[in-house]
Write a protein that binds this DNA or RNA. Structure first.
Lengths: 127, 127
DNA sequence: GCATCTGTTATATGATTGGTGTAACAAATA
DNA sequence: TATTTGTTACACCAATCATATAACAGATGC
């Protein structure tokens, strides 16, 4: 089991539990953590990164609600990604609409977005 | 000058001023509002959609800060999109990282993302 | 059995944010 | 002159974020 590297920016305007959630999702994407792996317990992780237990618990609850982990009393928080692709595609499209609108206003082209997508996918699909 | 259509969902967990900001950005992207057009005054718009003046003012301030409008005492809030493409590309990449990570976990492929991007660009680039 | 660790829940507190309300000011407009 | 504009300054209430302390039941290790 690998060690998960979490970096919290306490000066960020982004909530700590959201930073946690996002970094864990990206950790799954780059296969730093894999299906079936366990995350540290809320108490261990909270102590490690210097935040309150409830803050970590909230991040885990969101991840559970969004279908990235399952909470097991025996194994703790286990990576278990739901595979509802249709819902995931719908979610992604909704989020892309705003981001692409912002880019479109700045004259970012369709091809430039495609290039960005390819660059990021290269980071993620590296096994 | 066209009438801008704003729909606020008061039951949404998204802040009203953010809904406003996002809808105005998307309005610019679909060319519903164009460079040089004026947005309604903060008081007019607040009355129209039934929110407080300060809420609209906050949305306009964010749009100004992000380089989508300029506030002029004569013409009000005028669409004036900054054209710092490099910064826009960097911003977009940062935001795409999280969204694509979420999709990558759900086994969404590179090509599926490209298709989504093309679909959305078709909505936006319609002149 | 016993101590420990787990997720979970409950309650409380302080700081920050979101939204509203009222009011006032200077500049621009009609 | 009267009105409208963006802007600013207060104040208020509700919700959220993060913290703190505490307790509970189930699982684990000795």
């Amino acid at each position: 089991m690998k060690e998960i590297i979490i970096e919290i920016d306490f000066n960020s305007d982004e909530a700590i539990y959201m930073q946690l959630r996002n970094q864990i999702i990206m950790g799954i994407a780059v296969a730093e953590i894999q299906e079936g792996d366990s995350l540290p317990s809320v108490r261990k992780l909270s102590e490690k990164i210097g935040v309150n237990m409830h803050t970590v618990n909230k991040a885990y609850s969101v991840l559970k609600q969004e279908g990235f982990i399952k909470l097991d009393r025996r194994k703790g928080a286990v990576i278990a990604v739901s595979t509802d692709k249709l819902e995931a595609l719908a979610d992604m499209k909704k989020q892309l609409r705003l981001i692409l609108a912002r880019g479109c206003c700045r004259n970012i082209t369709r091809n430039e977005v495609h290039e960005l997508v390819d660059e990021i996918f290269q980071e993620y699909q590296a096994e």
